[in-house]
Simulated scan of single mutants.
Amino acid sequence: MVMMFSVSSGFLHAVRGKDNKDYIVRVMASGGEGHNHLRLVRRLSSAFPDNTLSNTHILPMVLEVQFQDITFGFFPKAQYSLIDAVTTRENTVEDVVHMILQALEAVVYIHGKDIAHRDLFFGNFVIDLDPGSMEGRCWMRPRIYMIDFETAVEFPPDTPLENRFCNDFPIPAHAAHLYRRPKPDELTHEPLLYCPFRLDIWQFGYDLVKYFSTTAVPELDSLWPRLMATNPQERPTAQKVLDELGAFVRRTPPDQLHVPFTNF
């Protein structure tokens, strides 16, 4: 058994396999529920050659186990979440910028597959190591993975753009009153009708503003607020943000980013 694992849900458990590797076991489907989640994870974990591309960034399900009406999925155990990375004194601005670039690649990838996540906060990105460059420059770049597609929606490729909308909360309707996630303006009005892809951008932008907008690098800090624009149509696409952040990194000397956060 893995000795250290913070259990955040009864759906998750950590195990050590016969191959001496650590895995997270998750209930994927049970009692007729969760099959959309299972289908999406199957697709994203197994679609060749997509699952071999460097910009995929989906934590793959490596094994399924069926017990009666319960389907368990086994995933490689990642050590930290993106929230951990942006709430420690040990990481530099440069460390986190490269993580954000990878996270944006993941968003671009799923949006390109007509999939919207609908819970795209930092807690749903995990990393395999924390570089901690403030403790001594680390030349390793941790790999970022996107997880938890239980709230995701997928549209058929031939769906017109004007029809790619949702009219429900990201969680089941019977539990909508329990939805405690931060909400953009479009989730506060009845009847609900919103673009889930624009919702993804708002959610990701919310945590960027919350955790990564006081770096003392003005050009970097100014990139994030428009992701939370009240008008969804004014929010940039993930590809546009990725291009702009990539351009910023290319023209900025690394030493200028080898600095701690000013919000600690």
Rank of each mutant, 00 (worst) to 15 (best):
V259G: 00
A216H: 15
E219V: 01
D69F: 11
K18L: 14
N124K: 12
F5Q: 09
S8D: 02
D19T: 07
R143C: 10
E135T: 06
M228P: 04
P218I: 06
I110D: 12
P142R: 10
L38P: 06
Y211C: 00
Q68P: 00
K113P: 08
Y80D: 00
E190A: 12
E234N: 08
M61N: 10
T188A: 05
M28K: 04
Y211F: 15
N263T: 08
M146R: 07
L161H: 10
A85Y: 10
G32H: 13
N91Y: 10
G136W: 12
A47H: 14
C138W: 11
N36D: 10
F165H: 02
Y109R: 15
R118Q: 12
A247F: 09
Y194Q: 02
V107C: 09
P191T: 08
H174I: 01
M3F: 12
I110E: 11
R118C: 13
A247C: 01
R43L: 15
L199M: 08
M61P: 02
Q66N: 11
T214M: 13
S9E: 07
S6E: 13
R89N: 01
R143I: 04
R42S: 06
S45H: 13
R251N: 03
V27N: 07
F212D: 09
T214S: 05
V126L: 11
I100M: 13
L257Q: 02
T56F: 15
Y23D: 04
F197I: 05
Y23C: 01
E234C: 02
S6R: 14
A116L: 09
A216S: 15
P236G: 06
E219Q: 12
S46C: 03
R141D: 11
P260C: 04
S133K: 06
A116H: 07
Q239G: 01
E190H: 15
Q102R: 14
V41Y: 06
T230V: 11
T215V: 08
L178E: 07
L192V: 02
E244R: 12
I70T: 15
I24Q: 08
F5T: 01
H258P: 00
Y145S: 11
T214A: 09
W224Y: 08
D130G: 00
N263L: 09
A152L: 09
M61L: 11
S46W: 11
V15H: 14
H174S: 05
C195A: 04
I100V: 15
V15T: 14
R226L: 03
N263D: 05
L161A: 13
R137L: 09
P76W: 11
T88K: 00
A103S: 14
D243C: 03
S81G: 08
P76G: 00
Q102D: 05
V249S: 03
F75E: 00
V217M: 10
V249T: 04
Y194V: 01
H177Q: 06
D158M: 08
D19I: 09
P142N: 09
S30W: 13
I147E: 02
F248T: 04
Y206A: 02
P184H: 05
S133V: 00
T87W: 03
D158F: 12
T214W: 13
P182F: 11
V93K: 12
I147K: 10
R143T: 14
R143K: 15
T237I: 01
K18F: 14
L161N: 03
G136P: 02
M28I: 10
S133L: 07
D148I: 09
A176F: 02
M1N: 07
P142C: 13
A229G: 00
E105W: 08
V108C: 15
